[in-house]
């Protein structure tokens, strides 16, 4: 299992790095799919098959499709890539990257001081997950339902593309301003 883990880790980190440095949005999204699939592989090697399948279905399926629809609707293509090239100068990304790299080094040093006992991977079956989910976490499931409901209503309301409706007084002001 550990070879699977290390290969999947390498693929995940490399694909994420590539996804976040691409200039064309569609290329970035395709690398992001690879990254999600690799993380699903990591979940599988950790003995969590249910979560691995959900990662593929929801992250690599639904969320990426949403992103691709938005990129298509906004027609982001070569112009965006050129614009990104102008925005991504070394003086823009160098200092934030160095600072976050320092934080990462600290975090890794802290984590490597922990115990070296190898992990005994045992598969936690979907049955146990669902028993826990609908047993002790039932309140949290209902709250997640509220959150999703609010998300759907909010997205439908915000995404509605209506013409700008001005009150008639404001309209007169606008006319005066234009004159």
């Amino acid at each position: 299992m550990s070879e699977l883990f290390y290969i999947a880790t390498f693929v995940a980190v490399a694909a994420t790095m590539l996804a976040l440095t691409r200039l064309h949005p569609v290329h970035a999204l395709l690398y992001l799919v690879v990254s999600f699939l690799a993380v699903a592989m990591i979940f599988l090697s950790l003995g969590a098959p249910f979560v691995a399948v959900l990662e593929i279905i929801i992250y690599a399926g639904a969320i990426i499709v949403l992103f691709i629809f938005v990129v298509m609707m906004l027609n982001l293509g070569k112009d965006t890539a050129l614009q990104e090239k102008r925005w991504l100068q070394p003086r823009v990304w160098l200092i934030p990257s160095l600072l976050t790299l320092l934080l990462l080094v600290e975090m890794v040093l802290l984590l490597l001081r922990g115990s070296k006992a190898p992990m005994l991977v045992s598969v936690v079956a979907p049955r146990n997950v669902s028993l826990s989910l609908y047993g002790e976490y039932i309140i949290a499931v209902e709250l997640a339902g509220f959150l999703l409901m609010a998300g759907v209503v909010g997205a439908a309301h915000i995404g509605k593309h209506t013409k700008k409706n001005l009150h008639r007084y404001l309209q007169e002001e606008e006319d005066i301003k234009q004159k």
Partner: peptide
């Protein structure tokens, strides 16, 4: 999922 749908809207 909720965050990304509102964010993309």
């Amino acid at each position: 999922a909720a965050e990304i749908s509102v964010g993309l809207a």
